[in-house]
Nucleic acid binder design. Structure first.
Lengths: 122, 122
DNA sequence: CTGAAGTGCAACCATTGAGTTGCATTGGTG
DNA sequence: CACCAATGCAACTCAATGGTTGCACTTCAG
């Protein structure tokens, strides 16, 4: 964790990215960092109904996902948002969506023969 | 749950969508359904190293997220992929990314006064 | 009608996750 | 130097998750 300074992680696995984004608190943290810029865990914690330690844990989860980068400034640690890993997640979804569209096309071409042929959801 | 036939759920909260996608098995299930078309839990389970019940639970998680739709066909239940809810997830990410870009712009416009312009990733 | 295939339901276990508290450590600053 | 603020580390609780198994129930088919 703290070993990584600011080097771009290769690319965090989708598990971790999606998992990090699955928590409302963590999404709120990301937005907060995106909107208001870098901040320390202590400062962030003052805006949330959680203890500082809880916020730190969330930030570590986000850092593992590469969605946040920690940078030491004096005795503080500034966390900054890094939306890059979202690209992979979006990519996976668009990919699925595309494949789904292709499948829909195939289903459309198939002659609708009378009764609802099961999968035939419009 | 099983009450819904094929009606589009209002829109599952992001928590649930991201959470559903955070599991590799569930992503594999979605892709399988997208690529090979609708299938029953029993059939799907034969392709995975898990029990049928485990697969059923995953499918229920996906169904809660609206990523999968269950349809009863005779004594079987066919599950079909439904990528629509991904739109909200993608939307959230693009939104964060956009806000981030705006922030970067502001930082870029700001005259680098000595200290850290730091966040200046690529 | 009887049986087998396919689901549904429930109990159970092990692991992870979110959150807490307490204390040690580091780093500015009066 | 001495203090205070911020971080780091560790232990602990409680709830949720992912997985299992066993059994009851429905439905098609011989």
């Amino acid at each position: 964790m703290s070993g990584v300074t600011a080097a771009a992680l290769p690319d965090a696995p989708l598990d971790v990215v999606f998992g990090a984004l699955a928590d409302p608190t963590r999404r709120a943290l990301v937005q907060r960092l995106v909107v208001s810029g870098p901040a320390s865990a202590t400062v962030l914690a003052s805006s949330f109904p959680f203890s500082r330690q809880a916020v730190v844990k969330h930030l570590q989860a986000l850092e593992t996902a590469g969605l946040v980068v920690a940078q030491r400034v004096g005795r503080e640690v500034q966390y900054r948002a890094e939306p890059a890993p979202m690209a992979a997640a979006i990519g996976w979804m668009l990919d699925s969506g595309a494949a789904w569209d292709r499948r829909i096309d195939r289903l459309r071409q198939r002659p609708a023969r009378g009764a609802r042929s099961a999968t035939g959801a419009n």
